[in-house]
């Protein structure tokens, strides 16, 4: 098996989940983990040209430390056609526990990078009594949070990033599922949302820090007409 630099690439787009202890691995480390798993599976991954060749792998949206995901996307470029099913069958046994690929498809060279098509993420947040205060945030006109940038603290409003009406009512008061803006243009990190919750709804900080956050899915398109990324090329 050779891993050569080719001009043509065959991309496999896969969904992946990362749950439990594996969620405490940072995004960069997760990329290394994928790279090694693909190499162990002897899949013909492609490398970038230049002094410091890197495996050609694109993740839809960086995943924060401590956040589980059930539906993230990754594009992996191969130098020859490998059926997506076959690819996943080979790679999955090589991933560490808690990480798994599923629902992969073969796609032609994507015109737009995977990162640029993501607009929306759906999260599930689980913590004692969190549903109602989170819902109340949606009723606000404005939700100010402090953001540190270049050593200065600035106030920004995250209300526009919460996709109004997107909340799915749960019968469990400890669970809230919601849609927020995600991607390279507008993005709301769940930890920022939780700190806003503590600030504006006086939700308990310790409970917030222990909240189990799961990214359920990523979408393209414009809310509420969301599109499945799988088909978005």
């Amino acid at each position: 098996m050779t891993r050569q630099v080719h001009r043509t690439e065959y991309v496999v787009r896969c969904l992946f989940e990362r749950v439990g202890d594996a969620s405490f691995v940072g995004h960069l480390d997760l990329m290394h983990t994928f790279d090694r798993a693909v190499r162990r599976a002897e899949m013909p991954i492609m490398y970038t040209q230049g002094y410091n060749p890197r495996p050609m792998m694109v993740f839809a949206l960086p995943l924060g430390v401590g956040i589980d995901t059930l539906g993230d996307y990754v594009d992996i470029s191969l130098s020859r056609l490998v059926d997506a099913e076959e690819f996943m069958k080979k790679v999955n046994p090589n991933l560490p526990s808690g990480v798994r690929l599923y629902g992969g498809i073969n796609i032609d060279e994507p015109k737009n990078s995977l990162m640029s098509v993501v607009t929306t993420a759906m999260y599930r947040i689980k913590a004692p009594g969190i549903r109602d205060p989170l819902m109340r945030l949606f009723e606000k006109e404005e939700i100010k949070v402090e953001k540190r940038s270049k050593g200065k603290t600035v106030e920004t409003d995250i209300r526009p990033l919460l996709l109004s009406g997107a909340q799915k009512m749960s019968s469990d008061p400890d669970i809230c599922e919601l849609y927020v803006c995600a991607g390279s243009v507008k993005n709301l990190r769940p930890d920022v949302l939780l700190s806003a919750l503590c600030r504006h709804e006086e939700y308990d900080e310790e409970l917030a820090q222990n909240a189990v956050i799961t990214r359920l899915a990523l979408f393209g398109g414009e809310y509420p007409r969301l599109l499945d990324i799988k088909g978005l090329l």
Binding site: G20, D21, A22, F24, V25, G26, D29, T33, R36, A37, R40, V65, G66, N94, L95, P96, S97, G98, E206, Q209, N210, A211, V212
Partner: peptide, 20 residues
């Protein structure tokens, strides 16, 4: 170890195991 405790330290990946 609680999530909060893990998130409060540098490189929590050090403490969770689960490696290939």
């Amino acid at each position: 170890i609680s999530r909060r405790d893990l998130m409060s330290v540098e490189s929590p990946g050090r403490y969770v195991g689960g490696e290939f």
